[in-house]
């Protein structure tokens, strides 16, 4: 299958790994809540621009890595990220054709859904869940999206 080989697999994996590093980078406590979910942004970008390169598997694996790094219940972030990736892969053509501002709005919605799933599982599994700060990254993530998309877009040449 020659079409498969031309997928931007290497930049996808490298940037997702970099996003993971940014996620675990220690930050001062007041900045920590505002840290965008870089991994979600990267996975969203790749599922919109190259849905066949990683697809839902990328979302699942990246989510599982977040679970390992953050010590949460295994599968929590994996489920949330798989779902968001699934929507993005299904709708990639519609999202891709929108201007960056509207994309940021869609990303806002996706991050909200993602955080809501994580929040719901936190509640079901008996972890403390209710702080206002946990929703902050939804807004900062959407704000960062145009920049992140531009940066990620430079890492490969669309064919």
């Amino acid at each position: 299958m020659s079409a498969r080989d031309r997928q931007p697999r290497t930049p996808m994996l490298l940037t997702t790994l970099a996003a993971l590093v940014l996620t675990v980078l220690p930050l001062p406590a007041w900045l920590d809540d505002a840290r965008p979910a870089f991994v979600v942004l990267a996975v969203l970008f790749w599922s919109i621009t190259a849905p066949r390169a990683g697809g839902i598997a990328l979302g699942f694996v990246a989510g599982l890595m977040i679970d390992v790094f953050e010590g949460t219940v295994l599968g929590q972030h994996a489920l949330a990220l798989s779902f968001v990736t699934y929507i993005a892969v299904r709708e990639h053509q519609k999202i891709r054709s929108k201007p960056l501002f509207q994309q940021a709005l869609i990303v806002f919605g996706a991050l909200f859904v993602y955080e809501f799933i994580v929040f719901a599982i936190d509640g079901w599994s008996g972890h403390p869940a209710m702080t206002a700060g946990r929703w902050l990254h939804v807004a900062t993530g959407a704000l960062v999206w145009p920049l992140a998309a531009a940066l990620l877009g430079r890492t490969y040449e669309p064919r």
């Binding site: 839902i56 979302g59 599982l64 798989s82 779902f83 990736t85």
Partner: peptide, 12 residues
């Protein structure tokens, strides 16, 4: 997605 969701939930 259904496959991965089932996998995640089993993991959890």
């Amino acid at each position: 997605f259904t496959l991965y969701a089932v996998l995640s939930i089993t993991c959890m």
